[in-house]
Design a protein around this nucleic acid. Structure first.
Lengths: 137, 137
DNA sequence: GTGTTTGCAAAGTGTTTGCAATTTA
DNA sequence: TAAATTGCAAACACTTTGCAAACAC
């Protein structure tokens, strides 16, 4: 966890989100944003951290992920009772590879899908999640 | 739980799904299909059963709901780490009332929404879930 | 210096397992 | 009667809490 210039990017990202760039946040944000193409679970990020020499307990990973989530840096998606954190909070549509339990965000442009159903009275959309669950042919 | 003619409907429904119409299944299926307009949680069905004089443990409710699910009678949907069972397995689209944690199925016709994204190779759609999350105005 | 964050053990929550007793066909 | 199902306590997996120590500003 000593890659100065990348760290600057990470620090800027944290500050922009209104979070103090503490050591843990820098380490985890760096791992998350520089190496994760797809959504991770807390457990997944934890073991990824271990493998990269970042010693941190699972509880701390949870706490840190939640702070990222509250700050709008990541987006939480719940599939089959598993909780994934997507590094792109603008994703609203996903491919879920059922056999591998892998969740990959896709943009609205990629699916050509616009969701705008008629709403119940007195309510507005908080968010719309589309999960396309895939299995092998 | 002694409404003979409705019970016949429930028994038929269970048989059609390939399940033995045992007492528990009849009781829970009857409660579920005759009184639930929206998706329930295991906990919700359990307390609904208690209130209706059906004494059954939560673990049994879980087991029974899973047997219904495996038989295609209900559909499981996961939101914010909560697990809901929708009595209409053909629903694929939902309104989720965030403040009340209430999940209501809507048909494709009601949203006018058809999902058909381009798929990764070697994969086919298992199912597509759309969850429109609502908050108060 | 002060308010924020960390760290992790322990507690909490929701779900599943195991298996003897019961029920169904 | 043989196979399926029940019932629920105990086990389990995942997540959150609590709070003293460390840190950022």
């Amino acid at each position: 966890m000593q890659i100065p210039e990348i760290d600057e990017v990470t620090i800027a990202r944290l500050r922009k989100a209104g979070l103090r760039p503490t050591r843990r946040r820098r380490e985890l944000a760096h791992l998350l944003f520089s190496s994760c193409k797809e959504a991770v679970t807390a457990e997944g990020l934890h073991s990824f951290a271990q493998r990269n020499g970042v010693k941190v307990s699972l509880a701390t990973v949870y706490g840190t992920l939640h702070s990222f989530c509250d700050a709008g840096m990541v987006r939480e998606v719940s599939i089959d009772s598993g909780r994934y954190f997507d590094i792109n909070p603008d994703n609203h549509q996903y491919f879920y590879f059922e056999d591998e339990r892998r969740l990959v965000g896709v943009t609205e442009a990629e699916t050509g899908l616009k969701v705008m159903p008629p709403l119940p009275e007195g309510r507005r959309i908080s968010r719309v999640d589309v999960v396309v669950r895939l299995r092998r042919d």
